[in-house]
Nucleic acid binder design. Structure first.
Length: 204
DNA sequence: GAGTAGATCCTCT
DNA sequence: GAGGATCTACTCA
């Protein structure tokens, strides 16, 4: 295992959420729950660019009890429950009052696979283990109670182990599951690793 | 393989 | 009271 470095706050506190989303590919998402460590390499994510973005919860500057975390300084976790079943994990970026966020859609299991299998109730590791945002949170043990915590703390953080994907492997496409957003649903704000079996949607 | 419906519950109106 | 940044299983072919 290569040396890993926790990403600093300066990584999140930048203006270009698209660039951050792209750079998150290949990074490690690590959770430490009651001393149990699980981690995965990010292979798919989506950017949500604040108030002008219809697909974002913060569209039009809307601020509610649920999404207020997005208005905080970058470097926090924003977790919320979707469809009453799935916990979706987001990384808050930019600075205070600007509700940018990056949704982690898929990771490739790295550490603690046994624990992930246990959490998801699966018998063996396959490409469905951490494919899709709902499964990522489930496998890594992320819940809505983790919303608002710092990503530089010890229970959930992002790290860099020096691994990088080449430009050829990184692709952009429209986001998934946001058809209601009209034109904004077509924006190429989704970044993924081409050919990786853990990327949701159709392989291409 | 492709298309569709149901699950399930918190949040906002 | 409606609906959602999803997933799975089931149907039909």
């Amino acid at each position: 295992m290569a040396r890993i470095k926790k990403l600093p706050l300066s990584f999140y506190r930048r203006e270009n959420v698209l660039q951050i989303a792209e750079e998150l590919l290949g990074k490690l998402l690590v959770t430490n729950k009651d001393g149990v460590i699980t981690s995965g390499r990010i292979v798919e994510c989506e950017a949500y660019a604040g108030a002008p973005d219809k697909a974002s919860h913060a569209f039009g500057g809307k601020k509610t009890n649920r999404n207020k975390v997005m208005y905080e300084d970058g470097g926090l976790a924003y977790v919320y429950l979707c469809y009453g079943i799935h916990h979706l994990f987001n990384v808050v970026t930019h600075f205070k009052e600007i509700p940018h966020a990056v949704l982690i859609r898929s990771v490739e299991p790295a550490k603690g696979i046994e624990e992930m299998l246990y959490r998801t109730g699966k018998k063996q590791k396959d490409h469905t283990l951490t494919r899709g945002p709902g499964n990522v949170s489930k496998a890594l043990g992320i819940y809505t109670t983790d919303s608002g915590i710092s990503l530089t703390g010890k229970s959930i953080f992002l790290a860099d182990d020096g691994f990088v994907y080449t430009e050829k492997e990184v692709h952009a496409s429209p986001r998934i599951g946001v058809d209601y957003a009209g034109q904004d649903a077509l924006l190429p704000y989704r970044f993924y690793i081409r050919g990786n079996p853990f990327v949701s949607g159709k392989p291409k």
